[in-house]
Design a protein around this nucleic acid. Structure first.
Length: 513
RNA sequence: UCCCCGAUAGCUCAAUGGUAGAGCGAGCGGCUGUUAACCGCUAGGUUCAAGGUUCGAAUCCUUGUCGGGGAGCCA
């Protein structure tokens, strides 16, 4: 079933403007047939994604890794080789007959994981399960698997926990190959979404000197030997350090990107982010990727609309352009996934003031482990109730109590939403199963209010001098949000653990690969 | 970081104080235009580490390491 959709998909992609062989701009557009690919590409072989969409009769070469080998004694002996190169979900079947010169000596010794090159003719398959296959003229073994008995990823069921221990090989499995392609597609369509709307991608720094970005524990960046030995507690002279001051890995590009927002109007960051929190959950990483747009002349509802439009855009694009992988996730990882994603794409999100959310939770008469009180943050169980039971859809909770949110969020007028105390223009988008996927706000653009908030929270205004300048020189209402990229992948694939949607996860006590 | 659970063959698990087994995978053979195949045979274990209790420990106790589930922090 996914095979069929894979070919349909491949045909559509080939016809699109971005189709073609990697790195070869000549292979583009509807004219890209198999023959022209072979003729024009310097590499001289065919991606299996294109081979599966090809017309029988073509002479082709594919290169990839053996998924399975099945032998038959029929017609004097033949082997069926499933060869995958990662360009699509499916492998292609190559049929190697006994009269190949290396049939006894090599083909019959092929095992899962071996690297091969296959020359042959693309033909309509005589068997069920695939429309086309390669009648092999030559099978060249490029790389053997030295011990099939201990090859870490043979063709069998594996737990994700085990595969994490062999992260260098897990991408050879169906699931992790699909995750990798989906991750790429989502990243590219995020860029496309913003580019089409006139946003500029800003490369905010990875290393930051402001140690008070306010979003959790930070990793230190230092070249001081004393720091590495950890024996300089209290007496560190950071003027001797590389940057001449204390430096850390960024926990957010937001403050930096706000500067570009107040000149380029619509900007975003998309890059790695680091949190040194000792978080041991299926939803947290120490190193993750975050998308942070920032829009000028905009308020909180503009911000919510942007986040909602972006999520819908990228999920719709994914369902259209990675149909093969999505069919797999729908069948094997989370049954009903595609229908749920379609629902997210098609229905408007529920926008719910925090004050109303508290009322909904209280009126639910559910017995929560943590009681619901106006002024306290929503617990995981509360978020799940709202998105999974009550509304059964993504919910954008807006206008949170001032006391539980960051200093840069814009102070609302008293009485907004009938709240009993002061609120800020914050916004969290909650989705079923994942919880918070987007966290954003309208920023405080009034200098005197911002200063009051900094003082109120006991922060040192010194390091924020340039951030405050933005409020002194042509300040404008503006807003933005942060999207956890890996959480988006969880939502899109139905995968349960965030460590399985990033190639090499970094988490407490985990930095092996 | 807190609470709970776990670690035995390449992988997933059984064995509840008395000779460590099965399924999958792997190897060999049989059958088959095969495709989560099917049938037969074979190999494969310092039972996470260190210490303790006991005539005897995979099993009970202590500590540590790592993993999982839940929570907090958040994206």
């Amino acid at each position: 079933m996914p095979r069929r959709e894979g070919r349909t998909n491949a045909g559509r992609r080939r016809a699109g403007p971005s189709a073609g062989l990697d790195g070869d701009p000549t292979i583009r557009g509807p004219a890209a047939t198999i023959a022209s690919c072979l003729k024009e590409t310097r590499m001289g072989w065919l991606r299996i994604n294109d081979a599966l969409a090809g017309e029988p009769g073509a002479e082709i070469t594919v290169k990839g890794w053996i998924r399975t080998r099945r032998d038959s004694k029929a017609d004097g002996g033949m082997s069926f080789l499933a060869v995958a190169d990662g360009t699509c979900f499916d492998a292609i079947q190559a049929v190697a007959r006994h009269d190949l010169p290396n049939y006894q000596s090599e083909v019959l010794r092929l095992t899962t994981g071996c690297a091969v090159e296959v020359d042959g003719t693309l033909v309509a398959s005589q068997g069920k399960g695939q429309a086309v296959e390669i009648a092999a003229r030559e099978v060249r073994v490029v790389g053997w698997v030295d011990d099939p008995d201990t090859y870490p990823v043979p063709q069998k069921r594996h737990t994700f926990e085990y595969l994490r221990e062999v992260a260098h090989l897990r991408v050879r499995t169906n699931t992790f190959g699909a995750v990798a392609r989906v991750r790429h597609r989502l990243a590219m369509s995020i860029h496309r979404f913003f580019d089409e709307r006139g946003f500029f991608w800003v490369h905010t720094p990875i290393i930051t000197a402001s140690d008070a970005e306010g979003a959790g524990q930070m990793f230190r960046v230092s070249t001081l030997d004393a720091m590495a030995r950890g024996d300089a507690a209290g007496g560190v002279d950071f003027s001797e350090d590389f940057f001449g001051r204390e430096a850390h890995l960024t926990v957010s590009g937001q403050l930096n990107v706000e500067t570009y927002c107040t000149a380029l109007s619509r900007v975003y960051t998309f890059g790695p982010t680091f949190r040194a929190e000792n978080s041991n959950t299926a939803r947290h990483l120490a190193e993750f990727w975050m998308v942070e747009p920032e829009i000028a002349f905009a308020d909180l509802l503009d911000d919510e609309k942007l986040a909602e439009d972006m999520l819908k855009f990228v999920l719709d694009d994914l369902l259209t352009h990675r149909a093969d992988d999505m069919a797999f996730f729908d069948q094997r990882i989370e049954p009903g996934l595609i229908a749920r994603l379609r629902d997210i794409v098609e229905k408007p999100f529920r926008v719910l003031p925090y004050t109303d959310a508290v009322r909904v939770l209280k009126e639910s008469r559910k017995s929560f482990d943590f009681p619901v009180e106006w002024g306290s943050d929503l617990q995981t169980e509360h978020e799940r109730y709202l998105t999974e039971e009550h509304f059964k859809q993504p919910v954008a909770v807006i206008n949170y109590p001032k006391s539980i949110k960051a200093f840069y969020m814009r102070l609302n007028d008293p009485g907004t939403d009938g709240a009993p105390a002061e609120t800020v223009a914050a916004m969290d988008i909650l989705v079923p199963r994942i919880g918070e996927i987007v966290g954003g706000s309208q920023r405080e653009e009034r200098l005197e209010v911002l200063d009051a908030r900094i003082a109120e929270m006991g922060l040192d205004p010194g390091p924020y001098w340039w951030y405050r300048d933005l409020r002194r020189y042509g300040t404008v209402p503006h807003a933005g949000f942060g999207l956890g990229f890996e959480r988006l992948i969880l939502l899109a694939t139905g995968m349960a653990n965030i460590r399985d949607v990033i190639p090499f996860p970094r988490a407490p006590k985990q930095c092996e690969f």
